[in-house]
Computed example of a mutant assay.
Amino acid sequence: MHELLTVLHTRVGETGYLAAGHFTFADAQLTSTLAALRLFLRVCRALAANPQLTTYMLQHAERSSVVSTAPWSSGTKVTLAII
């Protein structure tokens, strides 16, 4: 992820845009993706500050009923990266 963000940082630093010298659909997509990433990072930091809630989330994420219905899961174990 770090490498990808570095490439994007360099690219948008050149022109202020991702794919052209003006705002394109690529910029709209990247902007919405970065907004979601920023929200995700805030949630990770908030969970890191609340270890009981993190433990709760990880414990219940292992339940078969959650694993079988979780759209983000393809049978993979849920992990939490603390940032």
Rank of each mutant, 00 (worst) to 15 (best):
M1S: 11
H2T: 15
E3Q: 13
L5D: 06
L5E: 07
T6Q: 15
V7S: 05
H9A: 10
T10A: 12
T10L: 12
T10W: 04
R11S: 07
V12M: 13
G13A: 11
G13L: 10
E14T: 14
T15Q: 05
G16I: 04
G16S: 08
Y17P: 03
L18F: 06
A19C: 08
G21E: 01
H22I: 01
H22M: 03
H22P: 00
F23K: 06
T24Y: 03
T24V: 05
A26Q: 05
A28G: 08
Q29P: 00
L30M: 05
S32I: 10
A36P: 01
A36E: 14
R38M: 12
L39Q: 10
F40W: 14
F40A: 15
C44R: 15
R45P: 01
A48L: 09
A48R: 10
A48C: 11
P51E: 14
P51R: 12
L53W: 12
T54I: 05
T54W: 03
T55F: 09
M57D: 11
L58C: 07
S65P: 04
V66F: 05
P71T: 14
W72P: 00
W72G: 02
G75K: 03
T76F: 08
T79Y: 02
A81K: 07
I82P: 00
I83A: 00
